[in-house]
Write a protein that binds this DNA or RNA. Structure first.
Lengths: 206, 206
DNA sequence: ACCTGAACACCGTTCAAGT
DNA sequence: ACCTGAACACCGTTCAAGT
C-alpha cells in the first residue's frame, strides 16, 4: 500500500466529495476520507486543521466550477437568472453536499466572486448600494432555500406524494395541489420562483 | 432524585428545546435530554423511536404556536406577508433550532396547516392550483433560506463585517455594499426580500 | 522531523441484566 | 413487565510512541 508523499487540501476535498457522492453526507468522516486516500486518518490533519475546514474545502470544490462572468448581451434580469442557474447546476451535481454549501457558503471564495458579479449586474441596472445589498440577500435566500427544497423534498418526490394522500377533508387545498403539482420538473420550479423574484426586482425602486 | 412516572414525546421535546436554547444545537444529545429530565438515557426510547423523531417533535413544538388563521381584512399580499412573518417570529425565538426546522419541516403538522392557509389565500386571490403550488414552494424557499441567512450570517453580523474588510480593489462592490448594508435590521431585510416576491406574485398571471 | 497507532471523550443505539 | 446500566460500534481529535 504505497502512500502518496505530498497532498493538498484540494486533494482531501476531492476524496471527501467522492465519499459524499457515493455514501451520502452521513458517510463522510475523517476515517472515510483517509481510507479513500489510502493514508492514516491522522495524516489528514497535516493538510487541514479540522473537519470543518475540510467541509469548507468541499464547498469550494463544488462551487469553483461556476462561471462568474456575467452572461453578455442580455437584459439584466436574464443575466441574474443565468448566474443563479449556474450555481443551481453546480450544486445539483452533488446533492449530498447541499447542506455543506448552505452552512459554509459565507467563507467560500467562489461565492464572493459570484456575489461581486451579481452586485455588478445590479449596479449596472441602476440599483443603489443599499438596494443592491437587499437584492443580493434576497436572491441568496431564495437560492439557498430552493436548493434545500430540491434536495430534501423534491416537488415530484415522495414528500409531495405523501401530501397528495392526506385526507382531503382536512387539507382540501394541500392534498389537491400536491397531486396537481407533482409533475413539475425541479428546474422549472426553480425558474418559476426565481421569475417571481426578478419580476419584483424589475418593478422595485432603484 | 425522583423520577417522573409518565412522560410524553412533547415533554421530551420541551427538554430538548431547553438544551438547544442553552447549549446550542451542538449540545443536543440523547444523554443531555435525559439528564435534563432526570431520567436514564435509555428511558427516552420509551417515548420516541430515535433521535430523528425527537428532532421532529422539537420542530413541531417550535411551530405549534404559529397562528394559522389568515389575517382578516387585508389585501391578500399582506395576508401572505403576515403568515410568513409569524413563522419567522416563532423560529427566531429559538435560533439554535433553525437547522432542525429546515430539515424536518416537511413532516410538521403545524407546517401543513400553515400551508393549507397560504394556499387558501392564494386560491381566493384567483391563482390556479398549479400556480398556487409554485407560489407556495417559492414562498417556502424564500422563508427557509432567509431564516438560515439570518441564523448563520446576519446582515449586521460578523460575516458582513468580514466582507466589509475585503480588499476593495479585489471586491469593489462587495466590500462597499457590505459596510453600507451592515446597519439593516434583520426584520427589515426579511420584509424587503418578501416584498420583492409578493410584488412578483401581484404581477404574475393567475 | 515526519508520520501514525493507540487512546480519550464523546455519540446513538442494542441488549441483557436488574428490579 | 418495566426500567436501565453496561456494552457496542461509531465519531473527531489529542498525544506520545514509532520510524
Amino acid at each position: 500500500m504505497p502512500r502518496p508523499r505530498s497532498l493538498t487540501a484540494r486533494h482531501l476535498a476531492t476524496a471527501a466529495l467522492t465519499v459524499i457522492d457515493r455514501d451520502g453526507l452521513a458517510g463522510l468522516s475523517m476515517r472515510a476520507v483517509a481510507t479513500e486516500l489510502g493514508i492514516a486518518t491522522m495524516s489528514l490533519y497535516r493538510y487541514v486543521p479540522d473537519r470543518e475546514a475540510l467541509e469548507r474545502q468541499v464547498v469550494d470544490l463544488v462551487l469553483d466550477g461556476v462561471d462568474t462572468a456575467p452572461p453578455a448581451g442580455q437584459p439584466w434580469q436574464r443575466q441574474l437568472a443565468g448566474l443563479l442557474e449556474r450555481v443551481r447546476t453546480a450544486v445539483a451535481a452533488h446533492p449530498g453536499a447541499v447542506p455543506l454549501t448552505v452552512t459554509h457558503r459565507h467563507t467560500s471564495e467562489a461565492v464572493r466572486q459570484w456575489s461581486e458579479t451579481v452586485l455588478g449586474v445590479l449596479a449596472a441596472a441602476g440599483f443603489t448600494p443599499r438596494r443592491r445589498a437587499l437584492a443580493l440577500r434576497a436572491l441568496l435566500a431564495y437560492l439557498t432555500g430552493a436548493l434545500q427544497n430540491e434536495h430534501l423534498a423534491p416537488l415530484a418526490g415522495e414528500a409531495t406524494t405523501a401530501l397528495a394522500e392526506l385526507p382531503p377533508d382536512a387539507y382540501p387545498l394541500l392534498s389537491g395541489t400536491a397531486s396537481e403539482a407533482a409533475r413539475v420538473p425541479a428546474a422549472e420550479e426553480f425558474r418559476a420562483g426565481l421569475d417571481l423574484l426578478l419580476s419584483g426586482l424589475s418593478a422595485a425602486p432603484r
